[in-house]
C-alpha cells in the first residue's frame, strides 16, 4: 500500500479547517501534545502538522489566488528518513507512512533540513521532531466506523478538497483523481517522489452566448409583442 493524500486546488478555499482539525486530533493523538508557545501573548506559535498558505499567480487583473495546504507528503524517496541518525524517523513498509518514533528522537533537526516541504516541526517542550502521521491512529482504528477511518483533515474539509487513499491501487479514489485531473507532485525535480498529489484548477468551460443574443436589439418598450401565456 502507498497511502497518501490528494489536495484539490480547484476547490480549496483556504479555510484552515484541515489545519485546525489536524491540530485538535493530534494534540491528543499519538504524537501529542502539540505544544503551543505563548498562546495568549506576543507572537503566538506552536507545532502544526498541516499549514495552509496562499499564493497569487499572475498580475492584477489577470490574477488568481491559490490556497495551498501542505502536510507531510509521505515521500517514496524520503531523505528525511535516510538522514536520521537515531532511527527515530522511518517509513513504514506496509503502507509507506513516514513516522517519527517519539521515544528515539534526539531533536537534532537534521531530518527537517532534509525535508523540502516543511513538513517537520520540532516540539521544543519534548525536544522531539513531530509531523503528520497520516492519522495512523484513526485510519486503522477498527472501532471507528469505516467512513471515519480517514485522516481528520480529510473528514473535516468543507470543500472536499482532500482525499485519502492508496496510490498503489489503480482503482482507488486517489489514483482515479490523479489520472483524471492531472494530479501532480511538488518539486518533482528534487526526486523525493512525494506520494501526495495536487490537483490543478480545472479549466472553465466556455459558455456560448450567440444563441441568446439578438441580431436586432430592443431599445424601447414598443418593440415587444405580447406572448400568450396563461396564468
Amino acid at each position: 500500500m502507498k497511502l497518501g493524500l490528494v489536495v484539490d486546488l480547484d476547490v480549496c478555499v483556504g479555510c484552515h479547517a484541515c489545519a485546525v482539525s489536524c491540530k485538535q486530533w493530534n494534540t491528543s493523538g499519538m504524537s501529542g501534545a502539540l505544544t503551543d508557545y505563548n498562546p495568549y501573548g506576543e507572537d503566538p506559535s506552536g507545532v502544526w502538522f498541516n499549514r495552509v498558505r496562499s499564493y497569487e499567480v499572475g498580475d492584477y487583473p489577470q490574477n488568481k489566488t491559490i490556497n495551498f495546504p501542505m502536510s507531510c507528503m509521505h515521500c517514496e524517496q524520503a531523505d528525511c528518513v535516510d538522514v536520521c541518525p537515531t532511527g527515530a524517523s522511518y517509513k513504514r513498509v506496509e503502507d509507506g507512512i513516514v513516522l517519527i518514533d517519539q521515544d528515539k528522537c534526539m531533536g537534532c533537526n537534521y531530518c527537517s533540513w532534509a525535508c523540502p516541504y516543511g513538513a517537520r516541526e520540532l516540539d521544543r517542550s519534548t525536544g522531539t521532531m513531530k509531523k503528520c502521521t497520516l492519522c495512523l491512529d484513526r485510519i486503522y482504528d477498527e472501532r471507528l466506523e469505516e467512513v471515519d477511518r480517514q485522516p481528520s483533515c480529510v473528514i473535516t474539509c468543507p470543500a472536499h478538497a482532500r482525499h485519502f487513499g492508496d496510490f498503489d491501487d489503480p482503482d482507488s479514489n486517489v489514483s482515479q483523481l490523479v489520472r483524471e485531473r492531472g494530479g501532480y507532485q511538488l518539486m518533482p525535480e528534487l526526486g523525493y517522489s512525494p506520494t501526495n498529489r495536487y490537483l490543478p484548477p480545472r479549466v472553465t468551460r466556455l459558455i456560448p452566448t450567440e444563441d441568446v443574443s439578438k441580431k436586432s436589439l430592443i431599445s424601447s418598450v414598443k418593440e415587444w409583442v405580447n406572448k400568450m401565456v396563461e396564468r
Binding site: 506576543e42 506559535s45 498558505r53 516541526e121
Partner: peptide, 23 residues
C-alpha cells in the same frame, strides 16, 4: 516548481500564521 504553477509570476499572499514557526 514548488507550487506547480509554472505559468506566470507566483507571489506569496499569506503564510497562514502571523508569527514565526519552527520553519
Amino acid at each position: 516548481t514548488a507550487t506547480g504553477f509554472t505559468q506566470g509570476k507566483v507571489r506569496l499572499l499569506d503564510t497562514g500564521h502571523t508569527a514565526g514557526t519552527f520553519l
